[in-house]
Write a protein that binds this DNA or RNA. Sequence first.
RNA 1: GGCGGUGUAGCUCAGUGGUAGAGCAGGGGAAUCAUAAUCCCUUGGUCGGUGGUUCAAAUCCGCCCACCGCUACCA
Length: 508
Amino acid sequence: MKPLYYVTTPIFYVNGAPHIGHAYTMIAADVLARFKRLDGYEVYFLTGTDEHGQKVEKAAQDAGLSPQAFTDQISTNFAELAAQMNITHDQFIRTTEARHRVASQAIWNKLQANGHIYLGGYEGWYAIRDEAFYDESELSTNAAGQRVAPTGAPVEFVTEPSYFFRMSAFQEQLIAHIHANPDFIGPVARRNEVLGFLKEPLRDLSISRTSFKWGVPVPGDEAHVMYVWLDALTNYITALGYPDENAELWKFWPADLHLVGKDIIRFHTVYWPTMLMAAGLPVPKRVFAHGWWTVEGEKMSKSVGNVIDPAELAHVFSVDAIRYFLLREITFGSDGDYSRAALIRRLNVELANDLGNLAQRTLSFIAKNAGGVMPVRGKADATLDGFIAALPGQVREAIDRQGFNDALETIWVAIRAGNAYIDQQAPWTLRKTDLVQMEAVLAKLVDLLRVVATLLQPFMPESMAKMLDQLGVSDDARDIATLLVPIASGTVLPPPAGVFPRFVEDAA
RNA sequence: GGCGGUGUAGCUCAGUGGUAGAGCAGGGGAAUCAUAAUCCCUUGGUCGGUGGUUCAAAUCCGCCCACCGCUACCA
């Protein structure tokens, strides 16, 4: 039986149009899902949209739509983004689905049955103008003697009945779990951040609201709807059939990886695990937080007008180029800067010059001088053998810790070695002196390209499919295990065509 | 304020005790199979500052400077 792997993106909040940041999360998760499939795992990959809450209710109202009609529309945009980015999710979940209401109410009932929910009052300083609560420490007094928020809005002390989750009861258990499982939170900086946060006593979590209606009703008290995070986080198990633990997909729980943005790390490493502990369910194996992108050195924002539309970008360059750039440019987990110049540099230098040209020079040489078939292996110089043998393991190791750029750098070291090798071996000289040796050299290069293209499939599925076609690798021989079966000498290689054209800026 | 992190070549970064590294950019050369792509060589750094530990510090410790993150219930 295949080992299982369950990876998720966050469900995206439907309060605006998808941008490059959403694409980034999806792409990273997709590379993991594709790699694990390639490596023999049975993978389940979940993404979707988070559609409840006061903000959505308000945005729908502003748009003159019912909340359901509004979320239908926005959710579709995210589903389209996934399709445009070549995302291979197995399921797209929406929190407004009936089954999700069932699951959310089920986990609520479970928490309640286990004695971890109580009715209390949610009190605080509320600014009507901001529609937000503020901590006492944030307040100041204005000239008129009013208590005001940092925004200047007047605040008043309000109390609203609310159910609470006894999160404080799980603090020690959570801390112990984080210490016992060093890989539970990544990257390490985020783990330290969460541990730092847990040095202070954990407060119980307000998990219901009466101030708006657009949410999952609290079982037995329909004046309340569930606090959005309780509802939202539950999506990860709704998708697997919860509360039916006999469901076909339930075998995937606990998740191997929740991929999230750094802004929601706490919800995933504090709220969610304690909720699961309270419900008697296993916690996810790992949560990894990625960083944010700036654009040309500036924070991406609607008001600045520099929000990058991934679909537009993919139209100008290619989906594969964008997928590659986003995972290559920076260490996964850190913030990064997108710039058009940097993207073009990666595309031209690494994809077109290094990889694309290596494939093209090798394959066109074979087409012209070796009969257009896989050459006969021989006693070629062994320089590339180490790369060919080690690459799958090295890439696997990097992928398993979400070290996408390390994985790519490792592959590129091998590609550069391939270019050095062809120059040193000079098959164009061997053509006149030693045809057997010439074939041996060319075969070695094809073997290297085959490993490289195979391992790059998760990153650039379309381009690598083309490259593997040209390398004579059949559709059923493109996974990692099958790398052990060499391409047979004499296999007909289709006429080569450049996979990564150089990007030339329009003269206009 | 508290806790944590970062500061290394023009740029982006790797390097956690033992003669400063990579990629890109710059300079020189080679080759001409290839998407004028490639390969080789090379310029360039008092490793934020300062004091200390050590035979030896980018790497450990103290202090200082700069920048960043977290410091809970909008997601």
